[in-house]
Nucleic acid binder design. Structure first.
Length: 480
RNA sequence: CCGGGUGUGGCGAAGCUUGGUAUCGCGCUUGAAUGGGGUUCAAGAGGCCCUGAGUUCGAAUCUCAGCACUCGGACCA
C-alpha cells in the first residue's frame, strides 16, 4: 500500500524547474519521437506512432458511425487552385512550401504542398455534386499536411504533421451548422472520455477563426502549466468556398443552389496535449483508453522455478480479457523496469514473484498515484479493468480540477493582466466584440482570445477594455 | 524573424582560458552472479572533436563565416 512520490528518474527535468525542457525530455525519454535531419520534421517512433494509431482508431470509428466516408486526395495543390478563395490563400500562402521542379523540368505552374485541403475538396465536390440527391457529402481524410513554421516543438508544432480533416457539403446552412456542432461534440467527447482531457467548448472570434470560414468552433484544453491548447476545431464555411469554386446543385425546386460547407480537424498535436495534461516528473502518464500498452507484467526473480510460467499465464489471462498487456522478461533489474515503464506512462504495472505465487496473488501498481496493491489472482481480469477505469477517472478529475481552479473572472484589463501573470489559466471577461479590444488585450496583457464559451455567463453589462456595451463573455489565455 | 544557450564515440559531459598522442559516466557486446525500485564483477567494441576558410611546424582548443539543435519572444493547428 506504500504511496511513493519520490522522483526516480533523474534524466527528466522537473516540470517546476523548466516546463519546456520537461516536455522535450518526456517526448524523447519515453521514446515517442526523434528529431530528423530536417528542422521541424520529426520521426514518430513505434511507441509514439502507436498512440496516434489508437487515436485514429477511436476517432475513425466515431466518424464512420456518423456516416462519414474516408477518401484520399493529392498532396499537391496547383497555385491557381489555391488562389480562388481570397481569405484562405492570404492566410496560408506565407507558410506554404512549393514544388517547382518535376525531375529536371521546371513545372508550368508551381504546386503547393497541401497546408490543408479545402481547395482540393472543392475541386472534387464541383465534379461530384450535381443534384440535391448528391448531398450531403460527408468525407474525411487521414493524411499529413505541411506548413513552413519558423519554430517547432515535438507534437505541438511540426512543419509536417499528421491529422484528419473532415470536409462536408450540405444542401442548407442549418444542416451544415449542425454538422459543425456534431463533430465538435465528437472531439469533446473523445478528449474527455478517451484522453481524460476536460474541455471548454466555444466559438472563436473573427480574429482567431480559420481563414475563409464564417464561424470556427473550438475545444480548448488547459495544460499543466496553465497554458491553453486548442485541441480540435470545426468550421462553418457558409457557401463562400462553393461560390469561389463554382460548386452548384439543382434543388428540389429545379433551380441552381450553392451548397453549404464544413471542415473539422484534429491532429497529432493532441498527443502533445495529453503529455502536458497528465505527465509528471517521472515522465509520461497515459490515459488507459489510449495507452498502447495498458499493463506490463513483470516477473520477479525469474530464474526461480515456476515464476515465468505463472507470469505468462497471467499475461495470457489479461490479454484474453481484452487488455493490451505485455510482459518484460528481459534481465534488467526490477528497479530499472519500474522506472522505465513509469517514464513511458504505462498505466498499470503487474508484478508477480515467488511470494505472490505462494499466496495466489500479484501486485498492481498504478502509474497515476504510484499506489501498490496486492490482489488475488482470482478475478484479476476484472480487478485490472476496474483499476484502469479508476485511473482514467482519476486523471480526468485531476485535470478537471486544474481547469476549474484556473478560470478567473476579471473586470478590467489590469485585473486580467495581473491574474494571468500570477496564476495563468483562462481569464473570463465580458467583451464588446470589437477587434481593437482583442488587439489591446494581446498587446497589454499578452493574451489571445481562446473562445466565447457556449456556456455563457453574464458578468457585467460593459466591455472591461473599452467600456462599450458587452456582447459576449469570452475566455482569454496564453496558448501553445 | 529577434534574443539567450549548446554542438566532442549511441546518450550526457570534461578538456578550450595558457594550441602538443582523445578523457569520464551512462549505454552497447560477451560471460558470470544477482533479482520485490535504475544490482554487481570481469573482459571488449566504438571518435573526419558540427561544417568551411584562416593563423600556426602543429588546432577539439585561437580567428572569421556558416549550419544545426534547444529555450524564450513575435507569428501559426
Amino acid at each position: 500500500m506504500a504511496k511513493d512520490n519520490k522522483k526516480k528518474v533523474e534524466q527528466i527535468t522537473d516540470m517546476e524547474t523548466d516546463f519546456g525542457q520537461w516536455y522535450t525530455d518526456v517526448c524523447k525519454k519515453a521514446e515517442l519521437i526523434d528529431y530528423s535531419s530536417i528542422k521541424g520534421m520529426f520521426i514518430y517512433r513505434p511507441y509514439g506512432y502507436a498512440i496516434w494509431e489508437n487515436i485514429q482508431a477511436e476517432l475513425d470509428k466515431k466518424f464512420k458511425e456518423t456516416g462519414h466516408e474516408n477518401v484520399y486526395l493529392p498532396m499537391l495543390i496547383p497555385e491557381s487552385l489555391l488562389q480562388k478563395e481570397k481569405d484562405h490563400v492570404e492566410g496560408f500562402a506565407p507558410e506554404c512550401a512549393w514544388v517547382t521542379m518535376g525531375g529536371s523540368e521546371e513545372l508550368e505552374e508551381r504546386c503547393c504542398i497541401r497546408p490543408t485541403s479545402e481547395t482540393l475538396f472543392c475541386e472534387h465536390f464541383r465534379a461530384v455534386i450535381q443534384s440535391h440527391r448528391d448531398l450531403p457529402k460527408l468525407y474525411n481524410q487521414w493524411c499529413s499536411v505541411l506548413r513552413w513554421e519558423k519554430t517547432s516543438r515535438p507534437f505541438l508544432r511540426h512543419r509536417e504533421f499528421l491529422w484528419q480533416e473532415g470536409h462536408t457539403m450540405h444542401a442548407d446552412a442549418e444542416e451544415a451548422r449542425e454538422e459543425t456542432q456534431r463533430m465538435l461534440n465528437i472531439y469533446a467527447d473523445f478528449l474527455e472520455n478517451v484522453l481524460a482531457m476536460p474541455v471548454v467548448k466555444g466559438q472563436k472570434t473573427d480574429k482567431e477563426k480559420f481563414n475563409g470560414a464564417e464561424e470556427t468552433y473550438t475545444v480548448e484544453c488547459m495544460m499543466h502549466d496553465h497554458k491553453a491548447l486548442q485541441s480540435g476545431t470545426s468550421h462553418f464555411f457558409g457557401d463562400g468556398f462553393a461560390k469561389a469554386y463554382d460548386i452548384t446543385f439543382t434543388g428540389k425546386d429545379n433551380t441552381l443552389h450553392h451548397p453549404f460547407q464544413t471542415s473539422w480537424g484534429m491532429s497529432t498535436r493532441t498527443i502533445g496535449g495529453l503529455i502536458m495534461t497528465h505527465g509528471d516528473n517521472n515522465g509520461l502518464v497515459l490515459p488507459p483508453r489510449i495507452a498502447p500498452i495498458q499493463a506490463m507484467v513483470i516477473p520477479v526473480a525469474m530464474h526461480k522455478e515456476g515464476v515465468l510460467d505463472a507470469a505468462h499465464a497471467l499475461l495470457d489471462r489479461l490479454k484474453a480479457a481484452g487488455l493490451r498487456a505485455r510482459i518484460d522478461e528481459s534481465d534488467q533489474s526490477m528497479g530499472w523496469k519500474a522506472a522505465e515503464y513509469e517514464m513511458k506512462g504505462i498505466p498499470l504495472r503487474v508484478e508477480i514473484g515467488p511470494k505472490d505465487i505462494e499466496k495466489n496473488q500479484c501486485v498492481l501498481v498504478r502509474r497515476d498515484s504510484g499506489e501498490k496493491v496486492f490482489v488475488s489472482l482470482d478475478g484479476i481480469e476484472d480487478t485490472a479493468k476496474e483499476m484502469l477505469d479508476s485511473i482514467h477517472q482519476g486523471l480526468y478529475d485531476r485535470a478537471k480540477r486544474n481547469l476549474e481552479e484556473h478560470i478567473f473572472e476579471a473586470h478590467s484589463l489590469e485585473e486580467a493582466k495581473a491574474l494571468q501573470e500570477t496564476h495563468g489559466g483562462f481569464i473570463k471577461t465580458m467583451w464588446c466584440g470589437e477587434l481593437d479590444c482583442e488587439m489591446k488585450m494581446k498587446e497589454e496583457a499578452g493574451m489571445t482570445s481562446r473562445c466565447m464559451p457556449f456556456a455563457q455567463e453574464h458578468l457585467s453589462d460593459t466591455c472591461p477594455i473599452c467600456g462599450r456595451a458587452a456582447k459576449k463573455m469570452i475566455y482569454w489565455g496564453v496558448a501553445y
